[in-house]
Design a protein around this nucleic acid. Sequence first.
DNA 1: CGCCCTATTGAGATTCATCAACTGCGGTGG
DNA 2: CCACCGCAGTTGATGAATCTCAATAGGGCG
Lengths: 239, 239
Amino acid sequence: MTQALEHHDALARHAAHEVAVGSVPHAASADDALFPLNAVSTVLRFGRNQTIFNEGDDARYSYKIVEGGVRVCKVRPDGRRQIAEFLLPGDLFGFEAGEEHSLTAEALCNVVVMRCPRKHVERLSEEVPNVRRTLMMLLRRELSAAQDHLVMLGRQSARERLASFLLQLAERTDSDNGDTLDLPMGRQDIADFLGLTIETVCRALTELKRERVITIPNRHQVVIRNMDALEAVAEGAEV
Amino acid sequence: MTQALEHHDALARHAAHEVAVGSVPHAASADDALFPLNAVSTVLRFGRNQTIFNEGDDARYSYKIVEGGVRVCKVRPDGRRQIAEFLLPGDLFGFEAGEEHSLTAEALCNVVVMRCPRKHVERLSEEVPNVRRTLMMLLRRELSAAQDHLVMLGRQSARERLASFLLQLAERTDSDNGDTLDLPMGRQDIADFLGLTIETVCRALTELKRERVITIPNRHQVVIRNMDALEAVAEGAEV
DNA sequence: CGCCCTATTGAGATTCATCAACTGCGGTGG
DNA sequence: CCACCGCAGTTGATGAATCTCAATAGGGCG
């Protein structure tokens, strides 16, 4: 099965389960405090490239990813796109909004999310100090991630950005797979995250492969063969 | 009065005054709710390039700028620097931190700040719903600004970045001066904010000057002569 | 079985960085 | 008061990194 299909099948298979037990795999620590929201949440599915919400939309809901992946991005009038973040199972999004969403959210592949009305979030936040703290923490993490992203875009080379990206992904991923990373996103998505062109992403990947730092079993997986080398590349080691 | 001399001297001269009256010129709307903090704040002065706090420091205080300017940035082990934000009079910073500051804050020029212990911020935040909302809003704004910055670094050319930067400054500045912008930061700071080199910043400035979009009376001021053209450049108009 | 979409590879153009020289202002000392 | 000094900024020449345009390859689905 193909990626799209595989991804989705995995989804389909696990989704019911996850939802049933009401827990999430790479549980964010945020989950515990926000658990009561599950009771007022709806499970929704989106297909590849489907829009979950647009920049400027009323922020009526917040979301948690159960299975699959989502990109949140800005698109300029002329079509140039910058992805701010990739969201994976367990991640929350749409909690940080004010009146309107400041970003567009789209499905990277088939996705299962839990959607919860923001008024519930807000009420819970008013009533339960611990929820407040959790939401604050969530926001702080987003901000901190954005700051790291700024350094990447402003001051790292293409090679370094790609290495950093893979390492980031590795940190967020279950260690179950050894050092195999699943990439729910396409090359163009990676390019739009890293502020590069798709060709440059390909070339950087090929280069790392040639140097035996990674292998690429298929277009939706990357295996890290030499973690130290990859870290060295991310930190700017010459050649 | 003039500017560079102006900048520092103006600072020195005005600082006492501002502090004395205990009010801030371009008051952020956030100020009202947080006003009680002024009572527990200390006035501090920092000289050009002095560090206010470092990334990783315990976040014991939050700050408000009274006069001058501050940069908050990340510095990589090899010295590459990315400025996340410039802070101007009225701006708050150090409110967004968790246990530690995630960024380094340094004075752009002589600066006067009010410093307030975070435990007071936190207590007030627990007790007064309006303060909570204000702090949330502050965080959301920072996040949104960071997201816009990401688009700039990832998807705009040098020219476009510089134009966007000037427009950003123009929006934040009192309209008192007409279209004259004060730049408390040096060229290298601008470069580190835009993810460029100092030379590229200079060249882009010179180019805009040659095209009569701006004038540069001195190194700490820029006058916008043709706002429409500047906006067009920022949006990516061809040459 | 073949088409379509995505990814990869190649060649050339462009932008930006680097290295280097020079300028000008503001401060300092004679 | 003038001359010099030093830093910050500007300009120029060159090269490297990345983008653009174009052709090719591969895999999954109809």
